[in-house]
């Protein structure tokens, strides 16, 4: 068990090292990609489209709203999707080397969480640059980000166990994530849909953490703890469920990959 956890860490290290191998900027890309994303949304939406929200008094109001949601979602969906594809992508290895699949899954969790931290840090950096107020409440970011990553991880593990049986899931999961993205108030504000589709907000587990970050960025205030509590409970249930299913299904999966 300990050996396999250590293995996960060394896979993660390898993953981070190897990802941009042969590229001139190398590891700088970990910073460049989120920076470009933030840049595009601030410049385009704030300057050209002149979109302003009545929720905050700043010419960057929309960007401040948009950036944390986008960064969080991009990490959430990448993590979930990558974990779900582990059996497909690592089939060649799992067939020949006795390495548990969960080592690969955990390594994805580690890598994606680290990248998430980097991108969120840049997001906060953006607030500082535009001289927008931040507070000590920003320290709550880290535990919520971790919880979000764990939620995505366990959901990903459960999906991963079904992927070898239904290869179509490989195509379905990204589509499903795309739909989920658009029903979650990330690029638009909650008020725009709440009257017509209240359930897209009220029963949307992803909105618990997304709205947390949005509030924190806009109002420097950590609130929405009810939602985070629900997220925590759901994550715990998923953790047990995924462990149970993993034990039951992996011997069968080894036969078919």
């Amino acid at each position: 068990m300990l050996r396999n956890l250590l293995l996960a860490f060394s896979f993660a290290k390898r993953d981070l090292k190897d990802r941009y191998v042969g590229m001139s900027f190398g590891e700088l890309w970990y910073v460049i990609s989120p920076l470009i994303m933030i840049f595009i949304y601030t410049v385009i939406f704030s300057n050209f489209m002149k979109m302003k929200l009545n929720i905050a008094q700043s010419q960057y109001a929309y960007s401040i709203y948009l950036v944390p949601g986008l960064l969080a979602w991009s990490s959430f969906s990448t993590l979930l999707n990558r974990v779900a594809m582990v059996f497909l992508e690592k089939a060649e290895l799992l067939k020949k080397i006795n390495v548990p699949a969960y080592s690969f899954m955990i390594s994805v969790l580690i890598v994606e969480f680290l990248l998430f931290c980097i991108s969120m840090l840049l997001g906060v950096g953006f607030l500082i640059i535009i001289d927008y107020p931040i507070s000590w409440d920003f320290l709550y970011l880290l535990p919520v980000m971790l919880l979000q990553s764990l939620f995505a991880f366990f959901l990903g593990v459960i999906l991963a166990l079904f992927v070898p049986f239904f290869k179509d899931l490989k195509e379905i999961i990204p589509v499903f994530l795309q739909l989920w993205f658009w029903i979650t108030p990330i690029v638009y504000v909650k008020e725009m849909i709440y009257d017509r589709f209240p359930y897209a907000v009220d029963y949307n587990i992803a909105y618990t953490f997304i709205s947390f970050y949005q509030n924190l960025f806009l109002h420097s205030e950590a609130k929405g703890w009810d939602g985070i509590l629900v997220l925590g409970i759901v994550t715990l249930i998923l953790a047990f469920l995924s462990a149970y299913l993993y034990k039951k299904m992996v011997p069968v999966i080894k036969d078919i990959i």
């Binding site: 191998v21 042969g22 060649e92 290895l93 020949k96 080397i97 006795n98």
Partner: peptide
């Protein structure tokens, strides 16, 4: 236990 079950296992061809 180390198994040479099939060659090239665990190689990344870009590296």
């Amino acid at each position: 236990v180390t198994a040479l079950l099939e060659l090239g296992t665990g190689f990344n061809s870009e590296l």
